[in-house]
Write a protein that binds this DNA or RNA. Structure first.
Lengths: 168, 168
DNA sequence: GGCGCCATGTAACCAGTTACATGATTGC
DNA sequence: GCAATCATGTAACTGGTTACATGGCGCC
């Protein structure tokens, strides 16, 4: 996940590891805020894979490693961005990360992606309704309400993304 | 987390590791579904800590390890259940796990817990509103909408738990 | 005799976080 | 001179998952 966020950031401009952390702080922070302990190793891995490249710069006496995305990196990022959003798990971060970078996807492809996500969530919600019939036989009120939260929650997600899709 | 779920299940009745997995499948599965690879080691740890105890039973030729919660375990569980629900992170599972076991908490304490959670989420939501003013200066529409999702999402959470609190 | 379920467990892996270590620059 | 911020990095830990290994029972 963190690797794709980094690629996404580098799509806009070259950055250092420190910059990336800073930028996260006032952009994706609320749904995704990685630590240096995951950013620096991720930059290392991405460089080894050839998806980004670095140039070492000395600025104000400090050594800076400025990373840029390569063509292979752009390709990898686009492939990931266009792939379906996983609906199965409580994965707000996963879906929001794609929304965040959606400007890098052609409009029709973005619409298709959201459409598929809404369909998958709806399917999952229907599965929950079936589960509810089973659970109601043995669960107490408290236990049942966690399931009802789930139903309401997925309804909210479906509504929100449907509205979002219309405004696209 | 998994350790507290196990303690919660054992509050109701003694169970084997396999039972726990089964029971999760038709109760907490949609927000929390652990694998055997985390259940068995957790049972081992809980036993070592003295929070649960086991009796080995041979039933139908199969060796079963039936686990029961100890007094220390009950105490640990109640302490955890009564402690504040973390509002800071996208932690649906965390809050739902407590809702699921809320019947083990005295009504007033349950109400206080939910009340505190709603207050914390509301505070967090206000922080997001402030962040939005900052973000709007440099973000594009897609980037901003992830933040708007956050605002709508926390509004949903607040509404849901407020309604829940009233029906308690 | 083979499939599906019951039942327990371990080893390797994963995607991160926390805490630590280092050192330079800027501003009071 | 010392605190805050800039800047990079590693080691140990965390809380799991996946895949594997083992074996017995019931049923067709």
């Amino acid at each position: 996940m963190i690797e794709y966020i980094i690629l996404g950031f580098l799509m806009r401009q070259a950055m250092t590891g420190y910059d990336i952390k800073q930028y996260m702080g006032y952009s994706t922070a609320y749904f995704m805020d990685a630590s240096f302990g995951s950013i620096y190793p991720a930059l290392k891995r991405l460089t080894e894979k050839g998806l980004i490249s670095l140039s070492e710069v000395v600025e104000g006496g400090k050594l800076k490693k400025v990373y840029s995305i390569t063509n292979a990196g752009r390709e990898s990022f686009s492939k990931w961005l266009g792939s379906p959003i996983e609906a199965s798990k409580n994965n707000i971060s996963g879906s929001l990360t794609k929304i965040f970078f959606l400007s890098y996807l052609p409009k029709e492809q973005a619409a298709a992606l959201l459409h598929g996500y809404i369909r998958d969530i709806d399917e999952y919600r229907q599965g929950l309704t079936k589960l509810r019939e089973l659970v109601i036989l043995h669960a107490n009120g408290f236990e049942l309400s966690t399931l009802d939260f789930g139903l309401d929650y997925y309804t909210f997600i479906i509504d929100w993304y449907s509205r979002y899709l219309q405004n696209l």
